[in-house]
């Protein structure tokens, strides 16, 4: 079993909390948590990268975690963490890369809500000023 050219991988330092980007380098989220599944042979396998406030809240735990979870429910209206199957990840380096269609499937609902309801209505919101 080799992964990224290494035999053993420290998930905490090499995967958790990394930036997830689409192919164009646009921010999608952080690796807020990991979904682990126990295989038939008894070993654990990382199946999904979890992102969003729900996933982060679960990992923070305690009072802060409950606060983040509550805020997320208020803002998203959903209780499910968003997940990206590990098999869809194209590269892992200083950032985790995923294809555009995978990124679009897990984009933040609150970002979309804010864009459609507030930001886009302000004149000039659609113009890039590079």
């Amino acid at each position: 079993m080799w992964w990224q050219g290494q035999r053993t991988v420290d998930l905490v330092s090499e995967l958790l909390d990394r930036q997830i980007e689409d192919d164009d380098g646009r921010g999608v989220g952080k690796v807020d948590d990991l979904e682990l599944v126990r295989r038939a042979d008894g070993r654990w396998e990382v199946t999904e990268l979890l992102l969003g406030g729900r996933a982060l809240a679960g990992r923070l735990g305690g009072r802060v975690g409950r606060l983040v979870g509550w805020l997320t429910r208020r803002l998203h209206g959903s209780d499910q963490p968003r997940g990206i199957p590990l098999s869809r990840v194209t590269a892992i380096g200083p950032a985790v890369r995923v294809p555009a269609e995978v990124a679009d499937a897990v984009r933040s609902p609150s970002e979309r809500w804010l864009r459609e309801r507030v930001i886009s209505r302000v004149p000039g919101a659609g113009r890039a000023r590079e």
Binding site: G29, K30, D32, E111, L114, I119, A125, R127, A128, R129
Partner: peptide, 18 residues
């Protein structure tokens, strides 16, 4: 950057709403 949102002035404001 903490939460991993898209950010910056190089993208149009609608692309970085939060």
């Amino acid at each position: 950057q903490f939460f991993g949102w898209e950010w910056g002035k190089r993208v149009r404001p609608a692309g970085a709403a939060r």
